[in-house]
């Protein structure tokens, strides 16, 4: 199992140079992704989840952003060191991405067919006709009714959920190794959210695609993910398998997140828990644990130094002064 790691992110850093100062949106993130695995990345808004994944695809808007260090090893090669042509052969082909807001992510001026066909023609070398057939097949797989007809329509003729299905069909049309799904359901109705997640789950299993699922709620990843990374202020604070994270959360932040997930099995009359305070503004953060102002178990050391990452077992880490040598 350990040997089929297809993506290895090591100490990835992505910074934005802003007027107010240096914004360390991602500051030393590391994780592995195995073949066919589903990895959840969880964290509050602004914790750097999207930037991490844009950095993997080298899609960070620059200026103001740039990748300040680290490695992203995909099937043996470091993506960050590739030529522009090299990375383009991977984008949309080996690694594809779907984004948060399906309303704005499809080009409103082009037909769905044009947008789908161009990817297939580019990466699979099919002619237009064959590519269109493939696109229709993908739409059908993604659960679009009457795909032959709808493929020649424009995005505004689709509902939000349908557009996200189109995005999924488009992203999977070249049967990529990795699908990065950046909060694919946040902008959708609750009823549709479950369907979309189910679709991603089903298609990725069928195609053997590994998935990085980004979300800010642990509830979403619970049923779907094999392993989970919890991000806070640009860093991964805890990492482990889904079972470990849910049955034995170590970091106070993870514990807070889990407490704030609504539970169906425990009927409770109490109000849902929420972590007090706001996530920090990560511009010019001092060297400290960025969570300490909101942490119930904060100690003096938390205010002066970022905690060492403690290895608690195979691929199980936590960055908190409560664990490791600090304890």
């Amino acid at each position: 199992m350990t040997d089929d790691v297809i993506l290895q992110v090591k100490d990835l850093k992505a910074y934005f140079k802003l007027d107010e100062g240096l914004l360390k949106a991602v500051d030393g993130v590391s994780f592995d992704l195995r073949k066919g695995e589903t990895l959840g990345i969880v964290g509050e808004s602004g914790s750097g989840k999207s930037v991490t994944n844009l950095a993997i695809m080298r899609l960070i808007p620059s200026p103001p952003g740039h990748i300040a260090g680290g490695e992203v090893v995909f099937m043996g090669d470091d993506i960050l060191k590739m030529s522009d042509d090299g990375i383009r052969k991977i984008r949309g082909n080996k690694i594809s991405m779907i984004f948060q807001d399906p309303m704005t992510c499809l080009n409103p001026f082009l037909k769905i067919s044009t947008q789908m066909i161009e990817t297939i023609v580019l990466h699979q070398g099919l002619d237009k006709k064959a590519a269109k057939e493939k696109a229709v097949d993908m739409l059908k797989l993604a659960g679009i009714p009457a795909p032959e007809k709808r493929i020649d329509q424009y995005p505004h003729q689709f509902s939000g959920g349908m557009r996200q299905r189109v995005m999924i069909a488009m992203a999977l049309s070249c049967e990529p190794e990795i699908l990065i799904a950046d909060e694919p359901t946040t902008a959708l109705d609750v009823t549709i959210q479950a369907q979309i997640l189910e679709l991603i789950n089903e298609l990725s299993e069928r195609l053997g695609t590994a998935v990085i699922l980004i979300t800010h709620s642990l509830g979403v990843v619970a049923g779907m993910c094999d392993s989970i990374c919890v991000m806070y202020a640009g860093r991964i604070v805890e990492r482990g398998t889904a079972d470990e994270i849910f049955s034995d959360p170590r970091h106070p932040y993870t514990q807070g997140l889990i407490k704030s997930v609504p539970r169906l099995d425990k009927v409770s009359t109490q109000r849902l828990y929420s972590i007090p305070g706001q996530p920090p503004n990560v511009i010019n953060l001092p060297d400290c644990c960025p969570f300490f102002p909101r942490c119930e178990r904060a100690m003096d050391v938390c205010k002066t130094k970022y905690p060492k990452v403690a290895e608690l077992g195979d691929k199980r880490t936590v960055a908190c002064w409560l664990y490791g040598e600090g304890k």
């Binding site: 305070g277 920090p280 503004n281 010019n284 953060l285 001092p286 400290c288 960025p290 300490f292 102002p293 942490c295 119930e296 178990r297 904060a298 100690m299």
Partner: peptide
């Protein structure tokens, strides 16, 4: 127990930065 002085001075943030 942690003793964090939270926002008693409006001009400093939670990290005691001015």
């Amino acid at each position: 127990m942690p003793s964090i002085d939270k926002n008693n001075d409006r001009a400093t943030n939670e990290f005691n930065q001015y």
